[in-house]
Amino acid sequence: MRSSHPSPAGAFAVVARGVEKYFGHLQVLKGVNLTVEYGKVCCILGPSGSGKSTFLRCMNHLERLDKGFLEVGGELVGYREQGGKLYEMKKSEVARQRADIGMVFQNFNLFPHMTVLQNIIEAPVYVRRIDRKQAVEHAMDLLSKVGLTAKADAYPRTLSGGQQQRVAIARALAMKPKLMLFDEPTSALDPELVGEVLNVMRGLAAEGMTMVVVTHELGFAREVCDKVVFMDGGVVVEEGSPDELFNNTRTARAKAFLGKVL
């Protein structure tokens, strides 16, 4: 851990200040500010194109920042500060940081040429250098947690979308991450499969896992999240507890969005 940032960040899993991001000439993030405390669940809501997924992807450096400050677990993500400037890190250093940040994608992105078990133990064995037998044991524990022990030797293609996403969550957890990022984890699922994935996520939240969830599932946000953030046009428009955001909406834009979705 770096000690050159003795900010109150000690208690924060994520600290973002003035994060900006361009795709070509299009500015998708226009100064995003956000803090997430350890052990808390933060949901990011917003219309498509609001920059919420891009912002999430910045948190493990899948997207580069163009300006601003983004710290995860007390470390700048993908950059090193020196003389008031941020220098991009080497790929190997970024890889080391990413190992501590779990990510779950909208389209699962399981490795299709590997079985469920191989998917889960790949990174622990080859990145963390954990003994294979130990990794398999841990993987089986995680599979029982997501209710899929019977599918350990199945290939991802034989699984339903919901099952694939649960495997993807187990795969991310196998690295024992300090923070879990979820990028619209249920958006590619048939409606009847959404529940099983949300159940797994509920279980994680109950265990105290720090999570940042980009989602359209307002019910989940209301019930599970400690903090709800509404983004639009590349900025955080409104944030607060679920009660504040859903029942005492302050901004007109958030009101309009929630009115349409609810």
Partner: peptide
């Protein structure tokens, strides 16, 4: 491209 992203997100080196 999601395959590369998923692998990189797990901290796998290039």
């Amino acid at each position: 491209p999601g395959q590369r992203e998923a692998a990189e997100a797990l901290g796998m080196p290039g």
